[in-house]
């Protein structure tokens, strides 16, 4: 009992215990941090873009590498780990088009409503980071507190 828990399938626990792309990049194109103050989850996302955006259109740039760091609950950390792999090869545009359902599909489990904030933190940090890089947003830190 419990081991069959929908929210803690092997995949999530695997990413939590063995996070992919954990750490910080030496030369990220942009870096952003965020937190979920009610839970204390904290995520930093470093994104390195490929140098193919010479047509002047930032959003067409391709994500080459992603690293994340931080700590928090299994859902927030596994989500960051999966996202860091998922984003490689995507364009900034595609990142910005992602929504919470994409994250929940990626996690592959039912997320209870109270835990959705944990699940979407990494995605929101990456998206806000991209928008700041594009000059379309000005925040120091992303929070998912009011994101209901």
């Amino acid at each position: 009992m419990g081991l069959g828990s929908d929210m803690y399938r092997q995949q999530i626990l695997d990413h939590y215990k063995n996070p992919r792309n954990y750490g910080q990049l030496e030369d990220p194109t942009f870096t952003h941090i965020g937190e979920n103050p009610m839970c204390g989850d904290e995520i930093r996302m470093d994104v390195k873009l490929a140098e193919d955006g010479d047509d002047g259109d930032d959003s067409a740039e391709t994500i080459e590498r992603v690293a994340f760091s931080g700590d928090g609950c299994a859902i927030s950390q596994a989500s960051a780990s999966m996202l860091s792999s998922e984003l490689r090869g995507k364009t900034v545009d595609e990142l910005l088009e992602m929504d919470r359902d994409d994250v929940i599909d990626m996690l592959g489990v039912d997320i209870s409503p109270m835990r959705v904030k944990c699940a979407v933190l990494a995605e929101k940090v990456a998206q806000d980071g991209a928008e700041i890089y594009q000059g379309e947003l000005d925040v120091e830190k992303t929070t998912t507190e009011d994101d209901e």
Binding site: C39, G40, I75
Partner: peptide, 25 residues
């Protein structure tokens, strides 16, 4: 184990407990 994870696991056992800062951040 983060308090939220523990509390989710408790919920799998139908045990209702609360996780968070309990309004004392």
């Amino acid at each position: 184990v983060h308090a939220h994870d523990l509390t989710s696991i408790m919920n799998d056992h139908t045990i209702a407990v609360r996780a968070g800062d309990h309004c004392t951040q």
